[in-house]
Computed example of a mutant assay.
Amino acid sequence: MKHKMVSIGDDNEITFETRDFCPAHLLFKIESFSLLSENGIDKIESSEFELDDNYKWKLIIYPEGRYAKDGANHVSAYLAVENKSKPDAGWELNAVVSIFLLNHKLDKYMFKKGQRRFHLLNPEWGFSKFIVKETLTNPSNGFLVDECCVFGAEVFVVKNEGIRETLTNPSNGHLVDDSCVFGAEVFVVKNKGIRECMSILKVTNSFKHELKISKFSKLEKEWNSKEFNAGDHKWKVCVYPKGNGAQNGSHVSIFLHKVGFSSGEKVKADCSICIKNQSKIGNRKYQFNRLFSASSNSWGWPSFIPIADMKQPGCLVGDVCIIEVEISIQAVLRSLP
């Protein structure tokens, strides 16, 4: 069913279609959509979902548009693929991909569909102008209800392994001169994909925590802090006074760890770590923005500060090092039942 709303994809002008049943491979719910801009989040990615042949896919949403010129005033949506088994090989595949957006008012999924050849040099395809942002954010249109919108994705890899046959004229055994060629494809939709929700949080304040490490210069191995809370999440800091890995013996290494994850949970946070200068001359501080998950639960710097610099005035007072951690939780991604 064609819908009257029109938008232009990256390749051609493609109109929205609608259907009743939900996407087969991914359902991606975003809560508090308007806070994306407020929190400075200009790109969000779903978890990966895997199809046959060891290919992994993910949905990428650009709330402010992917390109300033082509995607201005629009929300952009793309599907990206990666061959995990042979990342350096000259792989390619043909696929029919669809990107969905739920219209709560109509109780239907609106989607745009296209056929694409994916390969190592061109692993993404989608729409820089998936939907006009004003259309999406206007509650009367039914896409954003209680600050919540739902995206989805389907991918069907096309393999030319079907039956190929010729119909002959039974009266004389010859091919019919006035010939034509028909064909058919059938993709059975099974709802076994990923279902997840991203809750965008209003960043009203950050969580600060101060750690004191005694007898710092005498520590040989790693030092781990006690767990502390930032929001509803637990964290800890790991310090290598003599360095970690390639920086062993030359730098102090510091890492922030997110402790404990519920099933399918991911946490996006703005973080900063600094070694406090107790003489109030100036702190050694680093900042980063990171999506923490069960498989990627830590982030930090192997070369946070040269070991020799720890002898500067104020870094160690009474052989005590003070580390300050500041965390602002921006979003939480969790699995939907």
Rank of each mutant, 00 (worst) to 15 (best):
Thr15Asn: 10
Asn172Val: 04
Arg66Leu: 12
Met5Pro: 00
Asp146Ser: 12
Asn12Trp: 12
Glu196Ala: 04
Ser85Met: 06
Asn94Glu: 10
Pro313Glu: 08
Met1Thr: 14
His233Phe: 15
Asn138Leu: 07
Ile61Thr: 11
Leu136Pro: 02
Thr18Ile: 12
Arg290Phe: 15
Asp52Phe: 07
Glu45Ile: 05
Val332Trp: 00
Ile8Thr: 03
Phe261Arg: 09
Ile281His: 11
Val189Glu: 14
Thr18Val: 13
Ser225Lys: 03
Val325Met: 01
His209Phe: 05
Gly318Cys: 07
Leu36Asp: 00
Met198His: 05
Lys311Gly: 08
Met1Ser: 13
Ile41Gln: 02
Leu291Asn: 07
Arg116Glu: 11
Ser34Val: 11
Pro306Glu: 03
Ile254Phe: 07
Ala184Gln: 13
Thr18Pro: 05
Val267Gly: 08
Val81Gln: 00
Ala95Lys: 08
Ser253Leu: 04
Ala72Val: 10
Gly318Gln: 05
Pro241Met: 09
Ala153Ser: 12
Trp299Ser: 01
Thr168Gln: 06
Thr137His: 05
Asn138Thr: 15
Lys129Tyr: 03
Arg195Ser: 15
Gln247Glu: 15
Lys212Glu: 15
Ile329Ala: 05
Phe21Asn: 13
Lys285Ile: 09
Lys113Pro: 01
Pro123Val: 06
Ala230Ser: 15
Ala89Glu: 13
Ser179Met: 10
Gly282Cys: 02
Phe100Ala: 01
Ala331Asp: 04
Ile14Glu: 14
Met198Ile: 04
Phe49Gly: 03
Glu196Met: 07
His233Tyr: 13
Met310Cys: 09
Phe151Tyr: 10
Asp319Ile: 00
Phe151Lys: 00
Arg116Tyr: 15
Asn94Pro: 03
Val317Leu: 09
Ala89Arg: 05
Ser171Arg: 13
Glu265Ala: 01
Lys105Cys: 01
Gly126Phe: 03
Lys268Glu: 07
Arg334Asn: 12
Asn12Ala: 12
Pro337Cys: 14
Glu222Gln: 11
Ala230Leu: 04
Ala269Arg: 06
Asn191Ile: 09
Lys108Ala: 14
Lys4Phe: 07
Gly300Arg: 04
Ile307Ala: 00
Pro241Trp: 07
Gly183Asn: 07
Glu326Cys: 10
Tyr109Phe: 15
Gln312Met: 12
Met1Gln: 13
Asn83Pro: 00
Met110Glu: 06
Ala184Cys: 14
Asn141Ile: 02
Val155Asn: 08
Lys276Gly: 03
Leu35Tyr: 14
Gln330Ser: 10
Ser47Trp: 06
Phe100Thr: 05
Ala294Ser: 09
Tyr240Cys: 07
Ile14His: 08
Glu161Asn: 15
Trp125Gly: 06
Ala184Pro: 02
Ile323Met: 01
Ser214Ile: 01
Leu35Phe: 13
Ala246Ser: 08
Gly114Ile: 00
Gly126Lys: 12
Pro123Cys: 05
Val320Gln: 14
Val96Pro: 02
Pro87Met: 02
Ser296Val: 11
